[in-house]
């Protein structure tokens, strides 16, 4: 299992009751603050470690922040092997303000450092070497500011060439680059947190979501999972379209890390031999539901995921 995070971040979580803009807030205690290694691929590695699955985490790190991130990652789990390329710039810091009173999460994500062409070729060589030791690859998250648009296509193409199963959760920009390059991972989970916009179209109705998902299937994806109205998801495969929704109430201030848990759980199911794509999507959803029991970016164990196995409903919608 290999995860790639092109733009890791040191996540600073702050829990603040009744958070409001344009107002001074004092954090009541250190218990309300946490610094943790982040970036989507890294989060997937940590979630998999919670499920007992070892992985290699790769990507770009830099400067003081990069070294803290690496130290924190090593402290979190010995099941995550690291293989990061160190760059000249400084790894970014992301801020997440969790407000349990108003049930909101405010996220401020920095753009990240610039990378050089040499850094990309260095990472690609290490990536290519590591591929010989893994069967599944997860490439997730944003890319550094000055990174070329073909960064995702380059890495996905290399992994496809080597016959690996590839899971990707990323933004519209990177998915568009993949789509236009006609290079598509096995499982795609668009990151729609910045807005329901995918492949040049605003997604409003269920039909819009399904149409965008099918476009991704047409260029090679086998499973597409789209977040729909926050707590539901649309699972799209060649065999049809399913809507999956919770039968329990979701606290929206507990959503931090749900997407990464979702991806990790799908990978877990896949490496344990499951090939029914809807079952893979369902297990991801159940794990994400289990994550919402926790306020912080704290990831669920398999036992906790098991507690949510009957707390959803799924229906075929197309």
């Amino acid at each position: 299992m290999l995860t790639v995070t092109f733009n890791p971040a040191l996540d600073r979580e702050i829990i603040l009751d009744d958070f409001q803009v344009n107002k001074l807030h004092r954090v009541p205690s250190f218990d309300n603050m946490e610094l943790s290694p982040g970036g989507k691929g890294i989060n997937v590695s940590l979630a998999l470690a919670n499920f007992g699955v070892p992985s290699v985490a790769m990507g770009f790190l830099g400067g003081y922040m990069g070294r803290i991130l690496l130290d924190e990652l090593r402290k979190k789990s010995r099941m995550v092997s690291t293989n990061f390329v160190f760059i000249r710039g400084e790894t970014r810091e992301n801020i997440e303000i969790i407000d349990p009173t108003n049930k909101t999460i405010t996220e401020i994500n920095s753009p990240g450092p610039e990378i050089e062409e040499e850094d990309i070729s260095h990472l690609m060589r290490r990536f290519s070497m590591t591929l010989s030791r893994v069967e599944v690859v997860v490439i997730s998250g944003s890319i550094p500011m000055n990174a070329p648009d073909n960064l995702y296509p380059m890495f996905v193409k290399e992994a496809l060439k080597r016959g690996k199963a590839i899971f990707v959760e990323t933004t519209n920009k990177n998915l568009t680059a993949l789509y236009e390059s006609n290079v598509m991972p096995t499982v795609v989970k668009p990151d729609l947190r910045a807005g329901n916009h995918l492949l040049g179209k605003d997604l409003k109705s269920l039909e819009d979501f399904v149409e965008a998902g099918k476009k991704l299937l047409n260029v090679g994806a086998k499973l597409v999972v789209l977040s729909y109205h926050i707590d539901s998801d649309i699972i799209i495969t060649e065999d049809g379209v399913w809507m999956i929704s919770p039968t329990v109430e979701i606290d929206y201030s507990h959503l931090l890390g749900t997407g990464d848990t979702y991806t990790a759980a799908m990978v877990y199911k896949y490496i344990n031999g499951e090939r029914d794509l809807v079952e893979i999507g369902k297990f991801g959803y159940i794990a994400a539901l289990a994550k919402t029991k926790k306020l912080r970016k704290e990831l669920p164990t398999l036992q906790e995921v098991g507690e949510y196995r009957d707390k959803y409903e799924i229906k075929k919608v197309g």
Binding site: V56, R74, R78, S81, T82, N83, F86, I87, R88, R126
Partner: peptide
């Protein structure tokens, strides 16, 4: 430490110094 950072035989001395320094 489960870190697999490494260099290749054909990497240049300059690159290796850069990696060790960073």
């Amino acid at each position: 430490v489960y870190d697999i950072s490494a260099v290749f035989e054909d990497d240049s001395v300059e690159r290796v110094v850069d990696i060790m320094s960073k």
